[in-house]
């Protein structure tokens, strides 16, 4: 059986897996942004929060993904078998790049600009929302881009805990010792990652100040 004929005969199934995959990634990144960006904003004025949140995000990043999925299964609410657990794990992985870039972007602003803002009587939140955030958005988007590419890759492992997605083919292929089936999952996943990287990179250039 060639790769092409497998694609042809399993088109519906592959498309469904891509859709599932994109859902897993999309929802995870969305949640990760909702957590990491505000956390990054708060961290600018709170050194202890910064240290704590970056340390935690770093720790999650170092846990091997398969192990993290395993750890989560027995947990109530967050755990179990299926997409919800997978999303929790993917969110944890996506946090670090977004949080770190948000923080770096918000704090690497030219001191003269911040001094001017302060001297014209901007309040702390005005400096944040009128100066820091607009100037950091390129950085933040770069973090989201990194997180998205990582998450698309890691999401293939989510199939191991029954979350579906393109990993389904990879695990099936491994079990069947069939390269064709593995590639039926791996190739679309790689293409998705490249497309996301390209699209977000384009947006990043569009947004870049200076």
């Amino acid at each position: 059986m060639t790769l092409w004929s497998f694609f042809a005969t399993h088109r519906q199934e592959i498309l469904a897996a891509i859709e599932q995959h994109l859902m897993l990634v999309g929802i995870s990144i969305f949640i990760a942004i909702l957590i990491a960006v505000p956390l990054g904003i708060l961290a600018v004025t709170r050194p202890r929060l910064r240290a704590l949140s970056l340390a935690l995000a770093n720790i999650f990043q170092t846990i091997p993904s398969l192990a993290l999925f395993g750890f989560l299964i027995p947990l109530p609410f967050l755990g179990g078998i299926g997409a919800r657990t997978a999303i929790v794990a993917l969110v944890l992985y996506a946090l670090l790049p977004i949080l770190r870039n948000t923080y770096v972007g918000l704090t690497s602003i030219e001191p003269a600009i911040l001094e001017a803002a302060e001297a014209m009587g901007m309040s702390g939140s005005q400096v944040m929302f009128r100066v820091r955030l607009p100037l950091a958005k390129g950085f933040i988007l770069a973090g989201i881009r990194t997180a998205t590419v990582i998450t698309i890759g890691i999401a293939t492992i989510a199939a191991a805990i029954g979350a579906g997605g393109l990993g389904t083919f990879i695990f099936r292929g491994v079990a069947m010792v069939s390269n064709v089936v593995i590639l039926a999952g791996a190739i679309p996943a790689a293409i998705l990652a490249l497309l996301a990287d390209y699209a977000l990179g384009f947006l990043e250039r569009l947004w870049k100040v200076n």
Partner: peptide
Amino acid sequence: RRGIGYVIQEIGLFP
């Protein structure tokens, strides 16, 4: 600060 204009060498315009 609103009543004091401030000009510095580095200017600090918002890019």
